[in-house]
Design a protein around this nucleic acid. Structure first.
Lengths: 99, 99
DNA sequence: ATCAAAATTAGCGGTCAAGCTAATTAAGAA
DNA sequence: TTCTTAATTAGCTTGACCGCTAATTTTGAT
């Protein structure tokens, strides 16, 4: 969902995780070592990304492999562009519409 | 900056404000009436958007006109696409890089 | 069964976001 | 000046987020 994806992107560490995963899957340990933050802290950020469906986790023996889910990011970019597109969505009243 | 833009997009009311402003400038009052939230609440959301440089405010007599700043959203969309692009940014170590 | 490594969960303290009502500023009209 | 309307700021409460250390789970090896 849009809320969780944009909120997840709001933290620089999480954007950097996505940038790292762009180049291929990585284990939690590899990701944790790439940052100054403690391992539990990185792990929690990974969980935020997973909740937003931006990454997938797969057990690989003793480690867990994370992969980026690029389609969610494509959708996010598209929804931003829709916000500034000229195609007219002509309703003006958002009362009761907020989640 | 990326942090504030994505965080701002994390709230549905703020995305809806941007969607409304896509169709032309509006006063704070017009925006406040479009939502269920109280006027002060909407006003604070507008301030978040302004801090993120996503809108501009201009006094117009007794009202204040808000306009969308589309270039910031274009940049945001581009930076998401960069996160999933194939062009190789070959550094793997984000230690000390987090803000 | 035991041990070590990988990773998450629990728990704590501090800060920040979100909503409201009430009070205050700013501008224009009478 | 005084009054009304537009909008923000102030103050408060609630809940979420962020970082850490310590404890727990899970897997695989001995």
């Amino acid at each position: 969902m849009a809320n969780s994806v944009f909120s997840a992107l709001g933290h620089p560490l999480r954007r950097q995780v996505m940038a790292l995963l762009r180049k291929g899957p990585k284990t939690s340990g590899e990701l944790a070592e790439a940052f100054d933050a403690s391992w539990p802290t990185v792990s929690r950020h990974l969980n935020v990304l997973k909740e937003a469906d931006m990454i997938t986790a797969e057990r690989q023996g003793t480690s867990i492999l994370y992969r980026a889910n690029t389609s969610v990011l494509e959708d996010a970019a598209a929804s931003i562009l829709a916000l500034i597109g000229q195609d007219n969505g002509d309703d003006d009243d958002y009362k009761e519409a907020a989640e």
